[in-house]
Every structure is written in structure tokens, then in C-alpha cells.
Design a protein around this nucleic acid. Structure first.
Length: 223
DNA sequence: AAAATGATCCTT
DNA sequence: AGGATCATTTTC
């Protein structure tokens, strides 16, 4: 199986397509402490100017969001709640501040190092979801910090690989995004993509999967 | 200058 | 349900 680092052309496209196709890709960090890697199982699109949930809503520009205005394939890392980091991938052409938030991985390599960073002793198969399930946990396990803000994913020690795995369309679920209830009608957009049934997916579990469709139909699961 | 607010996680 | 904890943003 041929394994290739994803190229700028992959990222510099429509953000919803990138978010969906990131599922199954391998996120790798070669850090001084060792290599960790995981398969992306959950990702959310944040589509700049018109998206009330996005940090770049209304083209808001600050030191924090600046990297979003450059070309796709760079890392947008931000600190949240004073103690966690969130890892995003900048997409699209310059001038379009859009990103994909990577929310969860299935651990693939460096599990012991991940566990050490997460201060978790028990990494038996059943307990693995606390390792990389959730954006804050994932960054802690992968040691993604503000040092990685603006790093080039096509040339640095933090990068993505196409492992050759294509997730079958029926296994991809589109749901509302997590913890953006403040965002008005944008809270209902189906811009979160997960691998159906994967135990490493974070956040609110989808309670009624049959009420979600992969593409095109309304979200009816809000009762 | 001061107050409010989180694209979270952990413990009760 | 609430606390940790702080950079960024919003409001005075």
C-alpha cells in the first residue's frame, strides 16, 4: 500500500469536501519524544464569513485567526477554556478563512506515549476512547500545542497521510456540530462528519442514527 | 481597564 | 451540574 503525504491541492478546495474526505486519513506527529499517529474519525467544517460558529465569522481578523486567511494546508491551533488546545486545518484559497476542526482519532501508533501525555495508565482496548476522543484529548495525546500554530502540514513534522483507506459513503454520517448552541441557525447545519459506529468518536453520541442522512436531507433528530 | 466568553474535560 | 483556568473578545 502506497502512503502519501497529503498535498496542498487536497486542502485548497471546498471545506465540506475536505472535512468529509479527512475521515480515514492518518494524522502523524513526529515529536522529539517519539512518533504518534491516529486515523481521523471525526471532523467539523467551519466556513468563515457566513458561519456564526466560526472564529472568522464576518471576516473577523485578529492575531488568532490570521492564519485562516492564508492558503490551505496550514495548522490553525487555538487554546480553549484556558487549558486545552484544538487542532484545525486551514482549507481553501487565500482570502477564504475556512477550516476543519479535527475532533477525534483512532490511535494507531505511539499509544504508550499518548497515554503518558494524557496521564492515563490503563490503555486496554476498552478504555482507549479517553485517549484521543475529543479535540482537547486528541491534542494532548498528539502533543499539538500553540507551537504548531501556522505550521505547514505539507513540509513539517506534523502532517497527514493518505493511508489508502477510502471510507464507504454509507459509513459517513453528517450531524450538527458540537457545543455551538450560541450560533443561531448555524447550530443545525450538518457540518460534522463521523465514521458510523466508531467507538473513538467524541462528544454527544448520535442517539438516533437512522434520523440522519449522509447528504442532502434535513436533520430531524432534535426532539 | 474590566468583564465576559468559550469549537473542553473531569469530577460530583 | 459545576469547576478548572486564561487568551481573546466585548463592553465600559
Amino acid at each position: 500500500m502506497r502512503v502519501n503525504r497529503l498535498q496542498p491541492e487536497f486542502y485548497q478546495r471546498e471545506t465540506l469536501a475536505v472535512a468529509r474526505e479527512l475521515l480515514g486519513k492518518l494524522l502523524v506527529h513526529e515529536s522529539p519524544d517519539g512518533v504518534t499517529a491516529g486515523r481521523i474519525v471525526e471532523a467539523e467544517a467551519y466556513i468563515g464569513p457566513g458561519d456564526r460558529a466560526a472564529h472568522s465569522y464576518n471576516n473577523r481578523r485578529s492575531k488568532r485567526t490570521e492564519i485562516q486567511y492564508g492558503p490551505g494546508s496550514y495548522a490553525y491551533v487555538f487554546r480553549i477554556y484556558g487549558m486545552y488546545n484544538c487542532f484545525n486545518i486551514v482549507t481553501q484559497a487565500p482570502g477564504k478563512p475556512e477550516v476543519v476542526l479535527v475532533r477525534a482519532l483512532e490511535p494507531v501508533a505511539g499509544l504508550e506515549l499518548m497515554a503518558r501525555r494524557r496521564k492515563i495508565a490503563d490503555i486496554r482496548p476498552g478504555r482507549l476512547s479517553k485517549l484521543t476522543g475529543g479535540p482537547g484529548r486528541m491534542c494532548q495525546a498528539m502533543e499539538i500545542t500553540m507551537r504548531q500554530y501556522g505550521s505547514n502540514l505539507c513540509s513539517g513534522s506534523l502532517y497527514l497521510l493518505d493511508g489508502g483507506t477510502r471510507i464507504p459513503e454509507p459509513d459517513i454520517l453528517a450531524t450538527p456540530r458540537i457545543n455551538i448552541d450560541y450560533a443561531g441557525e448555524a447550530r443545525d447545519y450538518l457540518w460534522r462528519f463521523i465514521i458510523r459506529g466508531n467507538p473513538h468518536v467524541s462528544g454527544e453520541q448520535v442517539k438516533t442514527p437512522s434520523e440522519f442522512e449522509v447528504r442532502g436531507s434535513r436533520f430531524e433528530g432534535k426532539g
